[in-house]
């Protein structure tokens, strides 16, 4: 069975007049739910909205599956649609709730006391730092380090010039390193 297990008898083509059976669709969801939910959650930072977005992405896939031609096409589609929908949901939430507060959040100061001293502090620290990036920088970073995609693949997925992707990546990494160093100092000084 392939990565998704869907239409394994016809791996080259998903195009079909009929929708997949419940079992086929379930296998597809189970194969990708973790990836889709993680992208949505890390852009939105809210598990409820992330689940909502992830569900909507899979339902949109269910409707559009007959237009997708291969497993790679499905994977690229899922990544692209999840990133766009999560960024849209975040913008919608920001404009609905409190635009000013959202802007402030982008430039928030890192307070060392906000980081707890759990065993996975390194991971928590990185996650916390990533949350301070802009949604687009975060999306590019997620595709690079969560999905292990090359900058050229990210550019194709997000329909963005390669130079822009590289610039987002470089700026995000520079920001993260600077913030990590500052955080390190604050933690060291108590």
């Amino acid at each position: 069975m392939g990565e998704m297990g869907l239409r394994s008898a016809h791996p080259k083509s998903f195009a079909s007049s009929a929708r997949p059976s419940s079992q086929e669709f379930r296998e597809l969801v189970e194969a990708h739910q973790s990836r889709v939910f993680s992208i949505a959650f890390r852009i939105l930072e809210d598990p409820w909205t992330a689940e909502e977005v992830a569900q909507d992405v899979f339902l949109a896939l269910y409707r559009d599956l007959d237009r997708l031609e291969s497993e790679e096409h499905v994977l690229a589609w899922l990544r692209r649609v999840t990133v766009h929908r999560a960024i849209d949901a975040r913008r919608h939430r920001a404009s609905r709730v409190d635009f000013a507060a959202e802007e402030f959040r982008e430039d928030r100061t890192i307070v060392a006391s906000e980081i707890d001293a759990s065993p996975s502090i390194a991971s928590r620290r990185v996650e916390y730092l990533i949350a301070t990036l802009s949604p687009t920088q975060r999306a590019v970073l997620l595709l690079r380090y969560q999905e292990d995609m090359l900058p050229t693949e990210i550019a194709t997925t997000l329909a963005m010039p390669l130079g822009t992707v590289k610039s987002h990546l470089q700026r995000a990494l520079k920001l993260l390193r600077a913030k990590a160093a500052r955080l390190q100092k604050e933690v060291a000084h108590g």
Binding site: V29, Q33, S34, R35, V36, F37, S38, F41, R42, P47, E51, A54, Q55, A122, S123, R124, R125, V126, E127, I130, L141, L142, Y145, Q146, D148, L176
Partner: peptide, 14 residues
């Protein structure tokens, strides 16, 4: 970064 950004588990019964 790679370690911190490992995919999370989807919610139960998703």
């Amino acid at each position: 970064l790679r370690n911190a950004l490992r995919p999370l588990l989807a919610p139960e019964n998703f």
